[in-house]
Amino acid sequence: MQLHQLEYLVAVADEGGFTRAAERLRIAQPGVSAQVRKLERELGHPLLDRSGPRVRPTPVGVAVVAAARAALDAVAGVQRVVDELDGLLRGEARVGMVTSGVFLDVPGVLADFSAAHPQVTCSLLEAGSGRLLDLVRAGRLDVVLVGAAGDLPDDLATRTVTEETLVLAVPPGDPLASSSSVAPGGLAGRDVVAPVEGNALREAFDLACAGVPVRVTCSASDPAVLARLAARGLGAAVLPASLSALHTEDLVTVPFDAPHVRARLVLAWPRGATSPAADALVRALVAATPPATPPRP
């Protein structure tokens, strides 16, 4: 029994005749007739009633046609799996990111992914968190690395990459340098150098200082740049606690007393079905995410 024989049988049953079935299959009519007769001989039963103007399945043929349809559907399912894998090899993977520092090497992951799947078109966009979230929700990006200070977006699947508190870095002679900690109110009227808007640290700082008259004199995406600006006296630098040892000779770091505010980097992607390439890229990024650790005090 051959798969094409089942296909021919189903076509004849559907079309009600060998000529129309041959036209549908785009093969010669004698070939269809010969293969169906060969199947009948192998099964030991006539499967088609050829006595009337329209060819119809016999009682045994009805059951065999139903089984043949199921077999053909199963084969089509196998083909769909192969097509999905082909889609991964020839698909598109689009990622967006804010500056992530050492926490997740998104460009490195994307480069390795592209090398493993050379026919996938990969793209990377760096932008602020708000814009990136809008783009992933609109289907224009497949996965994004964004900053979050408040609640995580509940309409997207998420994976926290890192979570920590903030510190302030000031020159040794600054009045804040001798403090054990600084509350948001202690920055009223002070000059501050802060991360750019859309950065997780900036969102956390703005959330903590809501209603406090803080002057942001400079902003930058690189914490090292913020530290250098603070060392030159342009304002207290807002830094992640993990970088509190930056420029220890030039700066003193003081804990920022806002214990309920955390700066997070989060991977976010659409829930539900996406393309095979997008799914594979998400898995690669999640696999590269460091193991979860408690927030830094």
Rank of each mutant, 00 (worst) to 15 (best):
V254N: 07
V254S: 08
P255T: 01
F256I: 04
F256D: 02
F256E: 01
F256Q: 00
D257G: 15
D257W: 10
D257R: 11
D257S: 10
D257A: 13
D257Y: 08
A258I: 15
P259R: 05
P259I: 05
H260K: 11
H260F: 02
H260G: 08
H260V: 04
V261K: 15
V261I: 15
R262C: 03
R262K: 11
A263P: 04
A263R: 06
R264W: 12
R264D: 08
R264M: 12
R264Q: 14
R264L: 09
L265C: 05
L265E: 10
L265Q: 14
L265S: 08
V266Y: 07
V266R: 10
V266N: 10
L267M: 15
L267K: 08
L267S: 11
L267F: 09
L267G: 09
A268D: 07
A268P: 15
A268G: 08
A268S: 13
A268Y: 02
W269Q: 01
W269A: 03
W269L: 02
P270W: 05
P270G: 08
R271S: 12
R271V: 14
R271K: 13
R271G: 06
R271E: 11
G272T: 14
G272D: 14
G272M: 15
G272L: 11
G272C: 13
A273R: 12
T274F: 01
T274W: 00
T274M: 07
T274E: 07
T274D: 12
T274Y: 01
S275A: 06
S275P: 02
S275C: 00
S275D: 01
P276V: 03
P276I: 00
P276H: 01
A277Q: 03
A277N: 00
A277W: 00
A278Y: 04
D279K: 02
D279V: 00
D279E: 07
D279R: 01
A280N: 05
A280K: 04
A280H: 08
A280S: 10
A280C: 11
V282T: 06
V282C: 05
V282F: 01
V282H: 02
V282S: 00
R283V: 06
R283K: 09
R283A: 14
R283Q: 09
R283N: 05
R283T: 13
A284V: 11
A284Q: 07
A284L: 07
A284E: 09
A284T: 10
L285A: 14
L285K: 15
V286C: 11
V286R: 07
V286N: 04
V286E: 09
V286P: 02
V286L: 07
A287E: 13
A287Y: 05
A287G: 06
A287C: 07
A288V: 10
A288H: 06
T289G: 11
P290D: 14
P290C: 13
P290R: 12
P290G: 15
P290I: 13
P291H: 13
P291K: 13
P291I: 10
A292R: 15
A292T: 14
T293M: 09
T293G: 14
T293R: 12
T293A: 15
P294R: 04
P294C: 01
P294K: 00
P294F: 05
P294N: 03
P295G: 03
R296A: 15
R296C: 12
R296Q: 11
R296F: 11
R296V: 14
R296N: 12
R296E: 11
